[in-house]
């Protein structure tokens, strides 16, 4: 099972993808940032502080998505002992933690002028903070526990338990009264965000996803090199 993932001869492919992303990344970043910061209109109510959203929302999405990936890979890894999944989730974790922190920080910078407070212990914000803690625990167990098998087991369980938090974050704004507004972009039904603002948001999301891919591949490469250094031919 999962034999495809055992292939450790993917070095060349990683290099190629990194080079490709590098060649388009800065051009795309420039386009997306100029749309987000200059060409998109200000909001009718918040004025220019709406521009914080173009970082905040993609960062939060990426924070949630990476933890979902980590949790699913960890569950598979825990049950089927696929060592490569451990490397992948280990490489994703710092990116997810960084973007979760970015979402929290930009959110509170946005909250001060709009809500009138930097921080509110409402369900959405608190559950997002718990997500950051789960990331932190996940990374810490792998760093601090020297016995690799044990670290792997414990971090997998942490990721699996933290997975329960993901739907709580998503639906917190619908289940409880929160200061945080409900989702503007819906998978089904019409979005309550105007097209002229949705476009730069999706562009920024694309750019940040590319950035994640870049960092992930570099991190993943180092993890493989580390294993190769220990004279292991296969993962």
């Amino acid at each position: 099972m999962f034999n495809f993932f055992y292939n450790s001869n993917i070095f060349i492919w990683i290099e190629r993808v990194i080079n490709f992303i590098n060649s388009i990344f800065f051009a795309l970043l420039l386009v997306a940032l100029s749309f987000a910061l200059i060409f998109s209109p200000p909001d009718y109510l918040q004025g220019d502080s709406v521009r914080i959203m173009y970082i905040h929302v993609p960062a939060a999405w990426i924070g949630l998505a990476s933890f979902t990936c980590i949790a699913l890979l960890s569950i598979l890894n825990f049950i089927f002992k696929v060592k490569n999944f451990k490397l992948i989730s280990k490489s994703i974790a710092p990116i997810g933690l960084m973007f979760t922190c970015i979402a929290l920080v930009t959110g509170s910078i946005w909250g001060q002028p709009t809500w009138g407070t930097f921080w509110a212990w409402d369900a959405r914000i608190t559950s997002m903070l718990i997500l950051a803690l789960f990331y932190f625990l996940f990374i810490l167990t792998q760093k601090l526990i020297s016995d690799e098998d044990k670290a792997n087991k414990i971090s997998s369980i942490i990721a699996a338990v933290g997975f329960i938090n993901i739907p709580i974050i998503k639906y917190s704004v619908e289940w409880w009264n929160t200061l945080h507004q409900p989702a503007s972009i819906k998978i089904t039904g019409t979005s309550t965000i105007h097209a002229s603002m949705l476009m730069p948001l999706l562009l920024m999301f694309l750019v940040l996803i590319l950035y994640c891919a870049l960092i992930f591949l570099m991190k993943y490469k180092t993890e493989i090199i580390r294993i190769k250094k220990n004279n292991l031919k296969r993962l």
């Binding site: 909001d43 809500w115 509110a120 507004q181 989702a183 309550t192 965000i193 105007h194 603002m197």
Partner: peptide, 11 residues
């Protein structure tokens, strides 16, 4: 505290 709704649009 002001509560912002989920609507975003240009002025």
């Amino acid at each position: 505290l002001a509560k912002h709704d989920e609507n975003y649009m240009p002025p």
